[in-house]
Write a protein that binds this DNA or RNA. Structure first.
Lengths: 194, 194
DNA sequence: GACACCTTACTGACCAGTAAGTAGAGTGCT
DNA sequence: AGCACTCTACTTACTGGTCAGTAAGGTGTC
């Protein structure tokens, strides 16, 4: 009957959840298995049971992000481009509110050169997907007349993505940065609300 | 007469130079005194002689950035805002060309929550100065009619700063990102060259 | 002989990762 | 019902490496 929560234990999931918090606040190099095990109330080796190498944990984290992001895209598929952009802004807000975390692409691209190779591959694929999605929004936004901007959809989509990634990082030093930049991105895209 | 190069040895300076490369490619948490000493051909303790704690080295690095940046501003003071922006773009290019390094503000804001307190203070001041300078460019650019953009000078200045910081990070995964975003920033500011 | 600038030699903390053992839950056989 | 077996999910105990940081000694220069 596998009553209640899970056929397999949920320890694996809880490890991923804690590791995610640590990744987004401290970065991959600056958290250890001890951080996770002490928070979870288990011994260090228990983490190694589920994720033998730290890179296994890292890859699993990114793969989960990719699955989530695909689900996020699918859920927003029916919305118009402007609303999709606002949904993306909402994601950024929730990172920021959660102890000034930054977005995964920000930490992964910043630490990219020090990541194990398997993580680099996964991270590059993930960031590619996000970038393509941003470009898709600006392309459709212009096509349906909702957005009006200078430059190509490709370039403005990448700038929007890049500006938001930077905004979350700067928000750690300057409280207003995220809101300011969100407002400015709307302005640049010719959207209401700035 | 302190002939030639230096009254004090230049070891201190060479340590800072090596540490700077390491900071911009690997981040503060991901480089060690061994990285520096092996590259420099001295023993570990020699680094500790010049910078007793790693945070001393970190603070010295940021202070040097701040001095350099002030000099950079002073040198560009006579140029028009558009040319100042291009000079800033040039800085970003040189980071990228140097083994895909990212800008100091990018690494410092990303690692901010794990930095020692003295470094946090210095980093926050540094990033503030850079942000104010970006805003100053866009403000004067609009005032003299060279730039024409939607939104306030404050917001567009921050977006430009943030987008460029993100662009250098994304360029580690996507080779064209930096050029694309530079071109788009010009377009958004109503400048020629896109 | 004082000082700047190193060296050798060390400490203790933390790190990822491993090996071997164990408790408990399920499963199948008699 | 009782017992053996197996598997999952841990535990304790450990290794070897890396880390920042320190103490004490040496060497050359003014």
């Amino acid at each position: 009957m596998t009553q209640g929560s899970d056929p397999k234990t949920d320890t694996r999931k809880r490890i991923l959840d804690i590791a995610e918090q640590l990744l987004l606040s401290r970065g991959f190099n600056a958290f250890s298995y001890q951080h996770i095990s002490s928070e979870l109330g288990v011994r260090n080796a228990a983490i190694h049971y589920h994720f033998p190498k730290k890179s296994d944990l890292g890859v699993a984290l990114i793969q989960r992000y990719r699955r989530r992001f695909q689900r996020f895209i699918d859920q927003q598929a029916a919305l118009d481009p402007g609303a999709q952009l606002e949904a993306y802004f909402g994601l950024s807000d929730s990172y920021y509110r959660q102890h000034r975390q930054i977005c995964p692409s920000g930490i992964l691209s910043t630490e990219f050169l020090t990541l194990p190779e398997e993580m680099q591959r996964e991270a590059a694929a993930f960031i590619d997907e996000m970038r393509l999605w941003a470009v898709d929004i600006t392309r459709r936004g212009a096509a349906c007349g909702q957005m009006r901007y200078a430059g190509t959809p490709e370039a403005i989509g990448m700038m929007l993505f890049s500006a938001l990634q930077g905004a979350l990082q700067l928000a750690r030093i300057d409280d207003g940065a995220l809101d300011t930049i969100k407002r400015q991105v709307r302005a640049v895209l010719g959207l209401p609300g700035h």
